[in-house]
Amino acid sequence: MNYKDYERKKAGNYLSVGIFGKQFAFEILTGFCDTPEYYPISKEEYDSFDEWKEDVSKMPEIKNRKILCSGYRVL
């Protein structure tokens, strides 16, 4: 999976949700250069993004998942 294949569908401040093919993903910009990291999310999390995008308590739960890919390097 390559970060260039990500299709952003909904955006917030320094984060978004979108898809890699059929895999729903959460994108967050990290580091000095705002390099993206992508984490898997469910269809329900994707659909409810507008409700939780401002809820910082949701972010650690998602960021503890195995990363799909990163702009730093292709995993």
Score class of each variant (00 low, 15 high):
A25G: 13
I67F: 03
D34Y: 13
S48G: 01
T35F: 08
M59G: 00
A11F: 10
K58M: 15
D34A: 12
R8I: 05
E51R: 12
E37T: 09
Y38I: 00
E51T: 12
P40S: 14
E37C: 14
K43M: 09
D47E: 15
V74M: 08
K9H: 08
K22I: 14
A11T: 10
R65M: 04
D50I: 08
Y14L: 13
I19P: 02
G18L: 04
Y39K: 01
S57W: 07
C69K: 05
E37S: 13
G21L: 05
S42P: 07
Y39T: 02
I28D: 08
Y72Q: 07
P60F: 10
K58D: 07
K43H: 11
D5E: 15
E44L: 12
V17S: 13
K9G: 00
D34G: 11
M59S: 01
S57P: 04
Y14M: 11
Y6M: 00
I41Y: 04
K22V: 15
Y38A: 04
G18H: 05
E27V: 01
M1Q: 12
E27T: 01
C69R: 03
Y6D: 01
G31L: 02
E54Y: 13
E45T: 08
Y14Q: 11
E45F: 09
Y39P: 01
D47F: 03
N13P: 02
L68V: 05
V56M: 10
Y38K: 02
D34M: 12
G31Y: 04
F24Y: 14
Y72E: 10
L29A: 07
L68K: 01
P40M: 09
C33P: 03
G18C: 06
S70K: 02
G21N: 10
V17R: 12
K66H: 06
